Computed example of a mutant assay.
Amino acid sequence: CGSRNPPPSPLLAMDAHVAALYREAENETAAASDHHGWQKVTYPKRQRKAAPATPVPSDPRADPRPNGPSSNVFASVEKKAHDRRRALESAAAEAAAAAGAARSGAGAGHALDSDDDDEDSGAEGAPRTDGGAGEPKKVKKKKKAKKPKVTVAEAASKIDATDLAAFLVDVTGSYDSQTDIQMMRFADYFARSFSAVSASQFPWTKMFRESPVAKIIDVPICHISESVYKISVDWIAQRSTEALASFVLWSLDSILDDLAIQQATVKVSKKPVQQPSSKAQVAIFVILAMTLRRKPDVLYSILPTLRENPKYQGQDKLPVIIWVIGQASQGDPVVGMYAWVQNLLPQLYGKLSGNPQVRDLTLQLMERILSGPK
């Protein structure tokens, strides 16, 4: 058989192991001598430096260069936004300061005004401000005093005869050949004089419906002073009959229109309430009465129109027609009697013959005409 190598001796292996331990002990002793007996403990994870992340190639904003342009790409935008925000905050602060100063000034001024009022009138409870911090005390508003009601008599008493005479002279000179305009200006003068009279102070429809003829004949001419009446009728006498006839029909139409408006309102409300009428109605009644009393022949010229035109027919319009005829009869009873026979007597035998109110009003007017002017 061939020769084989003998197995290593256990003593040799032990010697090698002991030698290795001895060398390791010497190394540790040398290291300890270098650190003066202290051993340095290290942590590999802390000393490991993280490698910089490589930008993703697919991101177009990434720049692989260190400190590349992508690191400050929004720096200018952020700076502008920051500057703009600071400017807005500064402007808001200035506006708030100005508003506070204005409120303080207004409060101080209001307090000074209140102090002045207290010194002058001695009134208590005036609004004051407490250093601009508190709100001014509310003061109850005083109710406006109602204007006193002006009656027809009071308004008529304020008409100055001298002023009226000067006005008529001026109107006559300004509209020498235009009588219709002269009459309108004349009516306008009286309309202004009675403008303060409310409808409640001159409920003419109710008066004509409920009062006897002897009473309504003198309304509202009875409130005109003698001097104003004389100046007016003397001026009217110088106007032509044709112009006065046209004015009388216009005035009568205005009165009947006002009557129709009030009747329509009463039918809707179903209450017999005097509705507001035009303030010019008082003036129209006054001028119409003065015209017919001074120039009764004007009525004679318009009797056919009053008799034939349906606009002037009807029971509701009868009190107005009776009032018109009564005014002319005050100037000339003959004209009044003629108008009564021509225009009123036929109604006693016509459609209104069976109406006791129509018969009563017609007979009352006849009694007034026969009794003569008052």
Rank of each mutant, 00 (worst) to 15 (best):
N5M: 13
N5K: 12
S9C: 04
A13M: 11
M14Q: 15
E26N: 05
D34G: 09
H35P: 02
H36I: 10
K40W: 14
V41M: 09
Q47M: 14
A50R: 08
S58T: 12
P66A: 05
K80A: 13
A87D: 14
S90E: 15
E94F: 10
S104F: 04
E119W: 03
G125Y: 00
G125H: 02
G134R: 02
K146L: 10
K149L: 10
S157G: 06
D180M: 04
I181P: 01
R192Y: 07
F194C: 08
S195C: 05
V197S: 05
S200L: 13
Q201R: 05
P203Q: 03
K206G: 14
M207T: 11
I221M: 07
K230A: 14
R239M: 11
L244K: 00
S251P: 01
L256H: 00
D257V: 09
A264S: 12
S269W: 00
I284R: 15
F285W: 12
A289T: 12
L292N: 00
P296K: 03
K311M: 07
Y312H: 08
Q315M: 13
I325W: 13
Q327I: 10
D332L: 05
A339K: 04
L344Q: 02
L348Q: 04
P356I: 02
L361S: 04
E367P: 00
